[in-house]
Each structure stands twice: as C-alpha cells, then as structure tokens.
C-alpha cells in the first residue's frame, strides 16, 4: 500500500516535469525543420517577413521584443525597486501589510485589460503629445512596465526583508543615517534577490502577448524610434496563427522555438541569482 502510494506520487512528479519536455518536443518538432531549411542565420537575421513570398526573417520581431522589454525595464525597475525600498525600509509595517498584498493582487488583472487601457488612454495621449501612430514601443513599454511592477516590487520587498536585522542595526550603530544604511548595506545585501525579481519581470515582459498585440501597432518593419510601431515575437505568433498553414505555420512555431530559448536563458539566470545568497 505504502509502496503503491510512493510510486503514484513519483509518477505524478515526473509527469509534471515531463510536461516541459513534451512542450519543447512538440514546438521543436514543428518549428525546427523550417529553420534548418532556410538556415538559422537567414531566419534569425532576415529583415523581411512576408509569408506569402516564403520570406521568413524574424529580426524585426526580435528587435521589437528587445526594445519593448528594455523600455519596460527602464521604466519599471527604478519605479518598482524604489517602491520596494520605500515600503520595506521607510514606511510603517502597517502600510506594507496593506500595500504589498494590494500590489500583488494587481498581478492578477488580466493582461488584456492593461492592453485595453493602453489603447483607450495612453496611445492617444502619445499620438497627440509626441506624434507618431501612438501604438508604439513607448506605449507598450509603459504598459508592460506597469504589468511587471507587482513582480518586481513583491520579490524585492522579500529580498530586502530577508537581509538579517543585525546588518541594519550594526550600520545604524556606527552612526550611518537610515538612507546610508539602505544604500550601502541593505541594498548590496539584497542585490541578488532584487535582480532575480527583475529577471522574472523581464521574462513576463518578453512573454506577454495579448496586451502587446493591442498596444504595439504590430508593424513588421524594423523600428527607428521609440514612437514607431513594432511587432514582438509573441505577437507575431498570436496574430498569424489563426490562418497560417504549411511553411507559414512552421515559421510561427520556429518563432516559438526562439522565444523558448530566450525564456530558458532568462530563467536560468534568475534561478542562479535567486540561489546566490548575498
């Protein structure tokens, strides 16, 4: 009886992990042949995506994903980390207890809602004030920054709170101000944890699909400024999947393969940072 239970549990655990392998298998099986046929270089660095002509170059989408993600981090990381530092170190515990769960709750808001808000409110604002089509790298970055805030804030607060109290007391006892303590002692000590949070947020930004489709304009050209419209890897898959067949569909799966690699690298980095203590 006990042995049977043990076997069943092992089976459950293995099948859970095997899902990853299964996903990789199916995505790769569909996507790798076309990359092999047109050459990995031509696929990754090709500037031209015109499925009807059999041209499958995803460089514009890689650039699009990177630009939007970078933009989101430029806005979201300072904001999120500052927010975490303030809540963890300078505000009363009562506020942390209210605001941290509140911020985490917002992680649950559907991404399409964020996208909708971007379309209704942010894009017109950008179009009128700054020019361009409005649906742009800038708009998408802002929306994604807000979407990654909960991840970054919550993990950074955890990292800061995990720093032993004695570090802080030791520093304060030497006559450092609270800010000097935060900046020179706590922040470096929590760096690994904060970085892990940032990387997870980055993963969320790269992987985000629906909000990005709504707000980034989806042009297949390589962007020249933050006000240009772009298409991301995820958006490319989601937009064309509905009607793609044959080689075209394989090319979309190949886009998925590239995305998969991006995410795995990021995850690997996040796990390493998360494991490293101070």
């Amino acid at each position: 009886m006990d042995k049977l239970v043990s076997r069943l549990l092992l089976l459950a655990a293995c099948s859970s992990a095997a899902i990853l392998a299964l996903i990789a298998l199916f995505i790769f099986k569909e996507g790798v042949p076309i990359m092999a046929r047109s050459g990995l270089g031509a696929f990754l660095l090709g500037r031209d995506w015109s499925p009807l002509q059999g041209q499958f170059g995803i460089l514009p989408f890689i650039i699009g994903s990177l630009c939007i993600t970078l933009g989101a981090l430029l806005i979201g990381v300072p904001l999120g980390v500052a927010c975490a530092v303030y809540l963890a170190e300078f505000s009363s515990p009562r506020w942390v207890n209210i605001l941290k769960p509140a911020i985490e709750l917002l992680a649950g808001i559907p991404s399409v809602v964020y996208g909708f808000l971007g379309v209704m409110w942010l894009a017109p604002l950008i179009r009128i004030r700054l020019g361009g089509p409005g649906l742009s790298i800038l708009a998408a970055s802002c929306v994604l920054a807000i979407m990654t805030l909960p991840t970054i804030v919550s993990i950074s607060i955890d990292a800061l709170q995990a720093v032993p109290k004695s570090y802080k007391q030791g520093s304060l006892a030497l006559g450092a101000t609270e800010w000097q303590t935060v900046w020179r002692v706590l922040f470096p000590a929590a760096r690994a944890g904060i970085l892990a949070g940032v990387i997870l947020g980055m993963g969320r930004a790269i992987g985000e699909t629906m909000a990005v489709i709504m707000i980034s304009g989806n042009s297949t050209a390589i962007p020249h400024s933050a006000l240009d419209s772009v298409r991301t890897l995820t958006a490319n898959i989601a937009i064309e999947m509905g009607y793609a067949t044959g080689e075209h569909r394989q090319a979309l799966f190949a886009t998925g393969v590239i995305l998969f690699f991006f995410i795995m690298i990021l995850n690997g980095a996040a796990l390493r940072f998360a494991r490293r203590k101070f």
Binding site: C14, S16, L22, G207, T234, A238, L252, I263
Partner: peptide
C-alpha cells in the same frame, strides 16, 4: 524534476497555447 517545474513556471503563455 524541480528544474523542469521551475522552467515550466517561466514559459510564456503563448507557448502553452501553441503546445
């Protein structure tokens, strides 16, 4: 197993969609 599950946690939803 844990590595597989951790990676799975980071896989973007669109990939689950394709799968």
């Amino acid at each position: 197993i844990r590595f597989g599950i951790n990676c799975l946690a980071g896989v973007p939803s669109i990939i689950f969609g394709l799968f």
